Simulated scan of single mutants.
Amino acid sequence: MIRHLVLFKLNDGVTRDEPRVRAGVRAFEELGGTIPELEHWECAWNITDRPIAYDYAINSAVADVDALKRYIEHPAHQAAAAQWREFATWVIADYPF
């Protein structure tokens, strides 16, 4: 199994309640039931307010590197990520477990 973690930081001046941010969250929430390669999917807003904290997180799992590639290339994933590019930056980590 491969764990795929993504942490998002909203750009300066962007708030969680903006329509484009809410649409981006909805797009990610829907991915878990859309992309068959996803064996585990959860996403949520960070609940702590610390200077080093990121704002939003995705914790997911796929079977192997090939499944990860298919997930990343899936049109629904690409569309959701494109929304977030407009208002956030992010870091990822992919590791076997």
Rank of each mutant, 00 (worst) to 15 (best):
R22V: 00
V14A: 00
W84F: 12
F28H: 03
R20W: 14
A76M: 06
W41A: 01
A44P: 10
I92M: 10
V65C: 00
F87A: 02
M1Q: 13
R22Q: 15
G33L: 08
G33V: 00
R20T: 12
E86W: 07
A67M: 08
V14I: 15
V21P: 04
K69S: 15
L31K: 12
L7C: 08
I35M: 08
E18I: 08
Y54Q: 14
E18C: 07
T48N: 14
R16W: 14
L68K: 03
A57T: 13
R26P: 02
F28G: 00
L68P: 03
E30W: 01
F28D: 02
D12L: 12
P36T: 02
K69H: 15
D66M: 08
L31H: 10
D55E: 06
D64C: 03
Q78C: 00
A27H: 07
P19M: 02
A79R: 15
D12C: 03
D66P: 07
A80D: 07
Q78P: 01
T34E: 11
W84P: 10
Y56T: 01
I52F: 15
Y56E: 01
I58E: 11
R22D: 02
A88F: 06
M1P: 15
A57C: 11
S60A: 14
H74V: 05
R20G: 03
I2Y: 13
H40F: 15
S60V: 05
L10V: 05
K69M: 13
I47F: 15
L68C: 01
F28Y: 11
A88D: 04
G24I: 03
F28S: 01
V91C: 00
Y71G: 03
D49A: 10
A93H: 11
V62T: 08
Q78W: 06
A82S: 09
A80V: 04
N59K: 11
E73Y: 10
R70E: 08
F8E: 01
A67W: 08
T15L: 07
Q83S: 07
R20P: 08
A27T: 04
